[in-house]
């Protein structure tokens, strides 16, 4: 970060310019504070901010944003470009999770795509996989189902019953369904993701619905939908900022740690298209696409971000580490 002055340009010192001015104090004291959520074996904690993101002069919480590495148990719909970045280790979800750990991920985000009845993986298989990943990595695990509500309800019940002594994050409770997954989370003492669709009021409503149902606030992570770069990121950026500002201003039902999924970056045509040489190298491009999505999430309030590409995860880890409020 050089000023860019030509080396041969000799500066001649002029008048002494020691007059400095006092800068007004602009740090805010907010009445509210984001709650904390304990994950894994109690060794990981997210949340706790008492100021706006990235500002060490007002945010006394020295925690950096956590990174969850995405793992899927079925590669059918997983992008080949992403798969090619894991040296074959993506073929075994446990190996893949270990690779995430070596990259520096704080969590694993497991998507059990294979439990789709068309693919036929059983709930027993899924439960066992969750346990194996948790044991092998010793990292907290977020568990998503295949996306079919009835199947996922059953799956979450089963996983909650069989995976004992492990605190998982079950995903996700949303407007369409929250009772079964909430019961499963309560029964197994697991945490829960509360999903809402790009709307502060819906996010708050989900948190109210879940707590009314009996879920503790300290067991909820809220996911207000992180729209990726170029596909609505502006909405997410502002919804997140408004949520965080409202929470710090004292709205208890929004003082819940936020999780953002940056993997949507891989759905953006301009990020992954490989047929236009003018757009530049696709690996670097999609890596930036996901990194900038994650940076926007971090700057607007994310406490945890889910990442797909190892390069992007590595970059955001470095930036998050630098930008923790030390």
């Amino acid at each position: 970060m050089d000023g860019g002055e030509g080396a041969s340009c000799a500066e001649h010192a002029s008048a002494d310019m020691s007059d400095t001015m006092k800068i007004p104090d602009v740090s805010e004291k907010y009445p509210g504070k984001i709650g904390e959520i304990v994950l894994g074996k109690g060794d990981y904690i997210a949340g706790g901010s008492d100021g706006m993101p990235l500002l060490s002069f007002e945010n006394t919480c020295k925690r950096r944003m956590m990174i969850a590495g995405e793992v899927v148990d079925d590669l059918t719909d997983y992008p080949e470009l992403a798969a090619s970045m894991f040296n074959g280790r993506q073929k075994d979800p446990v190996e893949w999770s270990l690779m995430w750990k070596s990259i520096g991920a704080d969590m694993i985000c497991l998507r059990l795509k294979g439990t789709d009845p068309d693919k036929g993986k059983t709930t027993e298989y899924a439960s066992e996989l969750v346990e194996r990943i948790a044991d092998a990595t010793q990292l907290p695990v977020i568990v998503y189902g295949c996306g079919i509500p009835e199947v996922d309800d059953n799956l979450m019940k089963e996983i909650s019953n069989s995976v004992k002594n492990r605190r998982l994050v079950l995903a996700k409770a949303d407007e369409e369904g929250h009772k079964t997954i909430s019961s499963a989370a309560i029964a197994g003492k697991h945490a829960l993701i509360a999903f809402s669709n790009l709307d502060l009021n819906l996010a708050k409503q989900m948190n109210i619905v879940l707590t009314d149902f009996g879920v503790q606030r300290s067991d909820i992570l809220m996911d207000p939908l992180m729209a990726p770069l170029g596909m609505g990121l502006d909405y997410s950026y502002s919804v997140n900022e408004r949520i965080r500002l409202a929470a710090l201003s004292g709205d208890k039902m929004l003082q819940i740690p936020m999780i953002c999924d940056a993997t949507g970056a891989w759905d953006v045509g301009d990020a992954v298209n490989d047929d236009d040489a003018d757009l530049g190298d696709v690996v670097n491009r999609v890596t930036w696409w996901e990194t900038m999505t994650a940076m926007a999430a971090m700057a607007s309030g994310a406490d945890i971000v889910i990442m797909r590409g190892p390069g992007a995860a590595d970059m955001i880890l470095g930036y998050a580490d630098e930008l923790r409020c030390d």
Partner: peptide, 11 residues
């Protein structure tokens, strides 16, 4: 570079 510029312009 173009792979840096396109995501940055989009941001």
């Amino acid at each position: 570079k173009s792979y840096e510029a396109l995501p940055l312009f989009t941001l």
